Computed example of a mutant assay.
Amino acid sequence: MNMIDIQHLTKDYGQGKGVFDVTLSIKKGEVYGYLGPNGAGKSTTMRHLMGFSKPQKGSVYIQEMDCWSEQKKIQRHVGYLPGEISFPDDMTGLAYLKLIAKMRKMNDFSYAEKLFSFFEIDPNTGMKRMSKGMKQKIGIIAAFMHDPDILLLDEPTSGLDPLMQNRFIELVEQEKMNGKTIILSSHIFDEVEKTCDRIGMIRNGKLIQEVTVDELRHSQFKTYKIELLDTLSFEKLKQAYPNAEHKEKHKQMIISINDSEINHLLSVLSTCHVAFLKEEKHTLEEYFMKFYGGDKND
């Protein structure tokens, strides 16, 4: 059974804003990364999953329940962290979380207390005096503290320092081990690569590409950094790959090829004096920029 099932979701706000014919599904225990520029439709998708917005076309289901007509029932099983959070200034972090716990009819607050320690936060601080990072931690705790089966996390590490970003990654990995289903939108590529099983890329409201992290890691497109021992070898390799990036001073070349071309590269290298050969791993950021880089609207 798919925990999240979106079919042909369309919500047109005009002037190209919204989501258009988005179809995706997420299985139990899967962490799904949702990537795209600001305004691409990530938050709009999340709001439909929470039942805050009604689709113009298509359907949105969580655990086979309609997100619009059964939103109250669904929200008991979901932890949601919105991209922009408004907190009451006249409350402490603890008072705010206790209020949320009461509204959810939670009987056990112990997980929230563990998360205070995990994120190194004093919840008795007034919300008005909290930094953006501290408020973000409160938002994360609010999403996780009732131990939901499904987590919808919109830019979850916004405002967190690198140490706390790593803590968040640890938390997601732990929840994944516990069988939670998570959809996570983020601009931090390292975070997505470390936590997600699959990645969906959305642009101008349309889902344009889906890729598994394993596919990304074992991409047929490879890049090699090569350093030659002498000028003659360098010139020979440069002649074979004239469009490759090169650093003549250091006799280095960076060659990108498909797997099917590797025998030709090895054949050329066998006639050269090679100092070292290293495969450069392609990152999610490079993959992402293939779809988004250079567009005037990005």
Rank of each mutant, 00 (worst) to 15 (best):
M1R: 05
M1F: 05
M3I: 10
I4M: 02
H8R: 13
L9K: 10
L9I: 07
G14N: 06
Q15A: 10
G16F: 03
G18T: 08
F20G: 03
T23I: 03
S25A: 10
S25Y: 08
S25I: 00
I26D: 07
V31C: 09
Y32W: 06
G36L: 02
K42E: 08
S43L: 02
R47K: 15
M50D: 04
K54F: 01
G58C: 08
Y61G: 00
Y61M: 13
E64D: 15
E64C: 05
D66P: 10
C67E: 08
S69E: 15
Q71E: 13
R76L: 11
R76D: 10
H77D: 14
V78E: 08
V78H: 04
Y80L: 01
Y80S: 03
E84I: 08
I85F: 05
I85S: 06
P88R: 05
D89Y: 08
D89R: 13
A95F: 00
L97F: 05
L97H: 04
L97W: 06
L97V: 06
L99D: 11
L99W: 14
I100F: 08
A101K: 04
K102F: 05
K102W: 06
M106R: 07
F109P: 02
S117A: 15
E120R: 09
I121H: 09
I121P: 11
D122L: 01
D122F: 02
D122H: 08
N124V: 13
N124C: 05
N124A: 12
N124P: 00
M127P: 12
M127R: 10
K128C: 03
K132E: 04
K132T: 12
M134N: 15
K137N: 03
I138R: 08
G139W: 03
A142H: 04
F144V: 00
F144I: 00
I150S: 11
L151Y: 02
D154K: 03
P156R: 02
S158I: 05
G159Y: 00
D161H: 12
N166C: 02
L171S: 07
V172M: 01
E173F: 01
E173M: 14
E175Y: 14
G179C: 10
I183R: 03
H187N: 11
F189K: 00
F189H: 02
F189Q: 01
D190V: 09
D190S: 14
E193S: 14
E193Y: 07
K194I: 02
C196M: 04
R198A: 10
G200K: 09
R203K: 15
G205L: 04
K206S: 04
V211E: 10
E215F: 01
H218D: 13
S219L: 11
K225T: 09
K225F: 02
I226D: 12
I226W: 14
L228I: 07
L229D: 13
L232E: 15
F234Q: 08
E235P: 01
A240H: 07
N243L: 12
K247Q: 11
E248G: 15
E248M: 12
K249R: 13
N263G: 13
L265H: 14
V268G: 05
L269E: 11
L269F: 13
T271I: 00
F276W: 13
L277K: 10
L277Q: 09
E279L: 06
K281V: 13
K281Q: 14
H282C: 01
T283V: 07
L284K: 11
E285P: 02
Y287N: 08
M289H: 04
K290D: 15
G293M: 10
G293Q: 12
N297C: 00
D298F: 09
